[in-house]
Design a binder for these strands. Structure first.
Lengths: 118, 118
DNA sequence: CTGCATCCCGAATGATACTG
DNA sequence: CAGTATCATTCGGGATGCAG
C-alpha cells in the first residue's frame, strides 16, 4: 500500500475519533458517565457549571447520534431523562485514559521546560 | 479527592492532548513524520495537497511551539527547512495508534448499524 | 523555497428567553 | 425538569499577495 494511502487511512481513523469526542465538552461528559454511571440531565448540568443548557443538549444529542451514549426519557410530569454510556461508548475508555495520561505528561514536560528557561 | 476535581483533572489531561493534536491537519502531519521521518517543507506540502501554505506553516508552528516537532532551518539560498518529530513527539505514537484503531472500529460499527437499518 | 500578513467566511460556541 | 428557538460572538480555517 502506497504511503499516501496508508497515511490517509490512518488519519481517517484518528479523524473519526476526533469528530466523535472533539467537542468542547464531550470528553468531560464521557468521563463523568464512564466513572459515575447513569446521570440525569440536571445532574450533568450541575456538574458542568460552565456549560449552558443549549450546549449540553447539543453535545448530548451528538453523542447519542454517534451511539456513544444512551438517552432514556421517562414520560412523566415532571420530565425525567437519563443518560448513560452505551457498550460502544465504553470501548472509548482506554483511549480516554491514554489521552488523559499523555496529556498530563505533556503538561509536566512543558512546565519542566518553562522552569528550566527561567 | 472529590469527584468534580478528579473529573476536572482528568479532563485537563485529555484537553491538553486535544489542544496539541486537535488541529485539522496535525494528526496527519504527525503521522507522516512518525512513519517517514524528517521531511522538508516542500515535501510535506506535496503530501498534503489540500492544505494551503499558510495553514501548513501555521500548524507546523504550533506543533513546534508545543515541542512535538523540531524545526531545522539551513541558512542557504534557496532556503531549506526540515521538520522532524522530537523525542517528546514520539511519545504520542501509542495514543495516535490507539485513536486510529478505535476510529476504525467506530466507523465499522456505524456502518453495521446503518446496513442493519435498511 | 519557505514563510509572513491580511482579509474573509462559516462553523462552533455561548447568552437569553420561551415552552410542554 | 428538560428542551427548543433565536440571536450574538468567537475562532479556526482558508485564499491571496508579498517578502527574504
Amino acid at each position: 500500500m502506497p504511503e499516501e494511502v496508508r497515511d490517509e487511512k490512518a488519519t481517517q481513523g484518528i479523524q473519526a475519533t476526533l469528530d466523535v469526542m472533539g467537542g468542547k465538552w464531550k470528553p468531560l461528559i464521557l468521563f463523568i458517565l464512564l466513572h459515575e454511571g447513569t446521570k440525569r440531565f440536571g445532574e450533568l448540568r450541575r456538574q458542568l457549571p460552565n456549560v449552558t443548557q443549549g450546549m449540553l443538549t447539543n453535545q448530548l444529542r451528538e453523542l447519542e447520534r454517534d451511539k456513544l451514549i444512551v438517552r432514556q426519557a421517562y414520560q412523566e410530569i415532571p420530565p425525567k431523562v437519563e443518560y448513560s454510556l452505551s457498550d460502544h461508548g465504553r470501548t472509548l475508555s482506554s483511549v480516554l485514559t491514554d489521552m488523559c495520561g499523555w496529556g498530563y505528561k505533556h503538561i509536566e514536560f512543558m512546565q519542566s521546560i518553562k522552569s528550566g528557561k527561567e
